[in-house]
Every structure is written in C-alpha cells, then in structure tokens.
Design a protein around this nucleic acid. Structure first.
Lengths: 166, 166
DNA sequence: TATTGTTATACTCTATAACTATA
DNA sequence: TATAGTTATAGAGTATAACAATA
C-alpha cells in the first residue's frame, strides 16, 4: 500500500544503533588519549565544529550546531580558554557577540584527534568500494539535511505528525 | 596519495551532526506525547530494541545493544515493569537470567510510537528515489556493522590506532 | 569460581532561570 | 525592548562498586 514503508520501516532501529555507537564515551577517551590531551566529549565536539567551519564562530552558532543550549557551550569555552585551546575575540560586526577561534595549540590538538579518528574510519571502510564510500557520504549528507528540516518542522508545529500532506 | 581519505575525511563531522540530531530530546518528547505515554528516552530505546528483536531478550542483551552497562537497564526495567509495560519471565535455559518481554500494553505503546516516528522519516525521505532509500538502508547497515567491529577492536587494543597494518 | 542480575552511589552532560551588556 | 552571552542551579543519563543467586 505504501511503497515508502518498506524502506523507511526499520530505519529507526538502524539510526538508534548508530547513535548508540557514536555516543560511546570510550572512543573519545581513546582518541584524546592517543592525541595526547585530556578533554571531554562536548569540548571535543566544539573543536570538531570549529575545525570543520574553517572560521571563527559565535557562541550561538556553536550551540545551534551542537543542538544544545547556550550556557552549556559557555561552560566548556571557559575551560577551553583557560587552557589556551580556544580564544574569544570581539565580533567587529556586533559588540555584544564574540567570535570563538582555535588557537594554534588548539588547532594542533584537533588535527591530531581528527587524524586518529579518520584513521579508524579509513580502517572500518577499507573493504568498501570507492563508489559505496562516495554514496555513503552523499546519502548521509542528504539524510542529515532532510531530517533536520523535518524535525525542525515537527518541533515548530509542536505536536503535529507532519506527514507532509497539505 | 590516499584515495580513501577523500571519502572518509569529512565523515566525522557528518556523523557527529547526525548524532547531534538523534540526541535531541525534543523529538522523543514529541513522539511519546503524540503516542499518549510519558516515557523518557532510555525507556523508549529499550522498547524499540525489544520490538525490533521480535522476541524477549535478556537484560544483558539489551545493555549490549544499547552500549550501556547493566544497572542502567535494570533501573529503567523496574520503572517499566511497575507500569506493566514490560514483564520479566524466567529464562528456561538459565535460572539466573530473566527474559524481558513486552506486555500487550507495551506492544501497543511501541507500535504507536514507531508509527509516528516512521511517519516523520517517511515525510523526510518523501522526495528520495526508491533506489536512494534502498541504498541508504544498505550502506547504513554496513556502516554500523563495520564501525562496531572497528571500535570494538580499538577498545580491545586499548590505545592502538589500528590502521589495520600488522 | 564465573556469570546474571540487582541495589546504592557518584559522575558527566544538558536544561532552565536570573542577570549583564550592547543593539 | 530585544538579542548575545554569562553565571548559578537543577535534572537527565550513565558508570562504578558492592552484593545476591545460580551455573
């Protein structure tokens, strides 16, 4: 009756399993240990986001990308700034805001960390064909984008299923 | 120099973003509200796992699939059993163990919940081709499996990069 | 003695509320 | 008065340690 159901039914368990996998603290601890630093997961996530952005970000932008609330980011930034891993610089466009930038030391840390984790991914996908790897990235990117849109709509509607009818 | 890098570099930010998306508590709250129950996320995860397994599971099996530790599961099972959403039955093969089964009431809850979430997924993937949906499931399944293997190896090695050389 | 599960306690991660400063 | 960020406090979520019962 609904051809979509065949493919989308069963997606939930798969995604939960992936989430479960990525939430394992053990991995981050292993990676930061190998990278020679002692940072917790949220701090590491902030660094990954700053590194991927390739430019300084506002606190609010980081919070939005982490899907968390402002104060959570602030707390970790305080700790990261004390250790000279990030720095806060004034935003020339708005004196209320601050731009968060990686220090050279912070950049070295995230580079080491990323190299290690990418090494794991490379090993995990070693048997994959080039085409499958490319497809994975493409579908994952699209999935994340479309789920974000859908979830935002659901949250905004505040209780409406949103089967996408009207 | 390394053709794998092209595809696997950048995988980390994508996966973190997906994780971030799936960790949003808002969604679970919306779904359980629509489903007419009041359960927290870990409890809901347990029900999803039991439903996907299509048979009673041991406490240890649930913990393994959630990648959490036994006591965490026990606590939620206590609460779920009080509300007659799951029940513990003796495992005929081992008197130490117990099998966790959904009650009819619990099955109804997870059915409603799953229908709602699957509705969201269906809406999110409405514009996708059948082929892309099929490919997504296939690659996601494989990714989860291969990452699990890799991460287990890393954790077991206890600090070894595991580029798969030796 | 090793394993399955439970109870009790502590730690990590994230949210809400109240406040300061600039727009 | 609205917005960007911070401080302080409270609540989920998960882990570690100690224990009970069966293999």
């Amino acid at each position: 009756m609904d051809p979509l159901s065949d493919a989308t039914t069963g997606l939930l368990p798969h995604l939960l399993q992936l989430r479960t996998l990525l939430n394992r603290g053990q991995l981050y601890e292993q990676a930061v240990k190998d990278a020679g630093v002692a940072l917790d997961r949220p701090a590491m996530t902030i660094l990954v986001i700053l590194d991927a952005a390739e430019r300084p970000l506002r606190v609010g932008e980081i919070a939005a990308r982490m899907q968390v609330v402002g104060p959570h980011v602030t707390r970790h930034l305080n700790s990261l700034e004390e250790r000279a891993i990030i720095k806060r610089v004034p935003d020339p466009e708005d004196q209320r805001a601050r731009l968060i930038a990686l220090t050279p030391s912070g950049q070295r840390i995230i580079d080491r960390y990323t190299a290690i984790v990418n090494g794991w991914f490379t090993a995990a996908l070693a048997q994959w064909s080039d085409q499958d790897r490319t497809e994975l990235i493409r579908l994952l990117t699209r999935l994340t984008r479309d789920l974000t849109t859908q979830f935002d709509a659901v949250a905004a509607a505040g209780g409406t299923p949103a089967q996408g009818e009207d």
